[in-house]
Design a protein around this nucleic acid. Structure first.
Lengths: 352, 352
DNA sequence: TTGTATGCGTTATCAG
DNA sequence: CTGATAACGCATACAA
């Protein structure tokens, strides 16, 4: 037995009415007699009638669904964002359709086509690490699809954006490392093209400059696939620790890269912070509950999801003119752990 | 400008053909001349035609979407499950619509109505902690909606289920505590009615019995809302540590309860494992990368999501007769941490 | 107050 | 090979 199909037609037939009468009765139209209304409503309840939203969507040309594309659902930052997204969507009667790019440009494009052809009313995106070509988003946006970017935004597209102050997050983290006595601070980032990469690297560099710590090109490393491939992070970290002078601390510029660095350092049996310092972006709840040997930069992921969705729904429902697109910037939170404060054990060779 | 709608009709008009011809040409029907086909296909590509899936859904009476209801997306176990769900759905051209119950029965029912009325082809569910009445699921299932349960299943409903061996997970964890020298082992669980609660408590009790450790009713505590309210866990833990004899270890029977216990113990300034032992279910990636003072039971969440989705799609596409419903049981993984092994510091009063 | 006809975008059936 | 028509479920302009 296939899933049901009790329609307005069924009600009409059973009650000897026309479909329009039934339709109007169900919508509590003023032009239907109380008796008929009661009759229809009661019968509808009895046979458990529910309007077919697909038919409604076809008629109203809107699906009451929004699409979400993130790189990875099973990433604390994104799952918390999606939590926020779902919260607002739920409140407003919207469905949330999720898909993940896994940092792949190709997959992002496929999902994009997939979702839009699935007739979503709007789109929430945090772009993939691989993505350098934003023309697909641009085209879609130009064709009138409401899009709101969060976290990893596309500056070339004029729409709402929700981010944290990435510059500040990286700046504060770097300063914290410097003030903790580290002098050879490496940075591991996502793909160079990503908005978050640019901003975070800029904050890192500024902190170094402001504290008269020399910046070294060799200390700045990018992971084209956002650290999704552990080989990628492995290579980068292996490379960094073989440098002379060896970095005495690493700044990991994303959730995934933080866990990636942790993994590799652990595999290499390098103890944090004894052998090497580590600070990174992380939204894992656990890091707040136990005393890990690393300090973290935490993003208000839930709020970001909420705000982004709120903006998107306003766009969809045209509650505000499309002229004043805004970029909401939230504060990241630097969480300092005592156990992370011990300085390096003189493991590195020279100093500068 | 609203998001546009280039339809078959537009193509037909532009090319001076009928909609049926265009439709057939697009579907590469054998009864259309190569020239016409070429003409249509090229024009369609040029104006970027995409079939309207809503219209298709209405016609085909299927949406190529599956619904997912979990208690909380921002929970490692569930976000990893959803990752697996999305993977399989993506491979098979299905969309994933997510919603969360937040452990609330009421919200679960609302989401259920919402999703099914949204015309999903099937449903993946891990039931809310609060839920004691499964009639909504039952009714839906009876009406023909394909449902697959995972993690928290409804035994009363005859359909596919995907779980881990909860009995074994709890048994092994309890045995580990006993063998580590703990003797007063408390258990903190979800709502009593939940399948996972029953199975895990059974495993806990069996391990106690097998090792001749006396079971105490006062040591077994339930959280009706799955620990979503931190007050709930707070109360339970406060109560436990005030008992005489005070438990020297706690077994937390879900991800949320593990973090909940961690939070409360931390707030109470009780050190793990020095003041009190703790072991719990957890799927947080971080716990594997740093040396936390607790051992964990980890579930193959991703695989569970994959398997559940696979079964659901088979159900939807009727690839197998609806007679042989199965319950797939996977192995949980007990991850022992050295730093968790130190025994209690004689803090507890008596022993038995 | 209620019924009839039309359209949303697509495909299937039936003619030609 | 191609075109006209009906149908999927619903809402609504227009009649009655």
């Amino acid at each position: 037995m296939k899933f049901e199909a009790v329609t307005i037609k069924d009600i009409a037939k059973a009650l000897g009415l026309s479909t329009s009468t039934v339709s109007r009765a169900l919508r509590d139209s003023y032009e239907i007699s109380p008796e008929t209304k009661k009759l229809v409503l009661e019968y509808a309840a009895k046979i458990n009638y529910h309007p077919n939203p697909i038919a409604l969507s076809l008629k109203e040309r809107r699906s009451h669904s929004i699409g979400v594309i993130v790189s990875e659902i099973a990433n604390s930052f994104f799952s918390q964002s999606i939590d926020g997204i779902e919260s607002i969507a739920y409140k407003n009667g919207y469905n949330v359709i999720i898909s993940q790019s896994r940092e792949s440009f190709e997959r992002e494009v496929i999902n994009l086509n997939y979702l839009t052809s699935r007739s979503i009313d709007g789109l929430l995106v945090s772009v993939a690490a691989e993505t350098k070509d934003f023309s697909n988003f641009k085209e879609l946006h130009d064709r009138g699809m409401p899009i709101v970017f969060f976290d990893r935004v596309v500056n070339e597209i004029n729409t709402h954006k929700v981010i944290v102050d990435n510059y500040k997050g990286a700046y504060d983290a770097t300063r914290y490392l410097i003030e903790s006595g580290y002098t050879n601070i490496a940075a591991v980032a996502n793909n160079e093209v990503l908005s978050i990469t640019k901003d975070r690297i800029a904050g890192y560099k500024a902190a170094l400059a402001d504290h008269h710590v020399q910046e070294r090109d060799a200390y700045i490393r990018y992971c084209a696939h956002g650290g999704l491939l552990s080989s990628e992070v492995e290579e980068v970290v292996a490379d960094l620790v073989s440098l002379d002078p060896r970095p005495d601390a690493i700044l990991a510029l994303s959730d995934k890269l933080t866990t990636g660095c942790l993994r590799i350092l652990k595999a290499k049996n390098l103890k944090i912070p004894h052998d090497i310092g580590l600070i990174g972006f992380s939204n894992s709840e656990i890091t707040e509950l136990i005393e890990p040997p690393l300090s973290i930069i935490k993003q208000p992921a839930f709020e970001m999801g909420e705000i982004a969705t709120d903006l998107l729904l306003q766009l969809i429902e045209s509650k505000r003119p499309v002229t004043d697109f805004e970029t909401k910037m939230l504060e990241p939170q630097l969480i300092i752990r005592e156990s992370a404060k011990r300085k390096r054990a003189g493991a590195s060779a020279g100093s500068q």
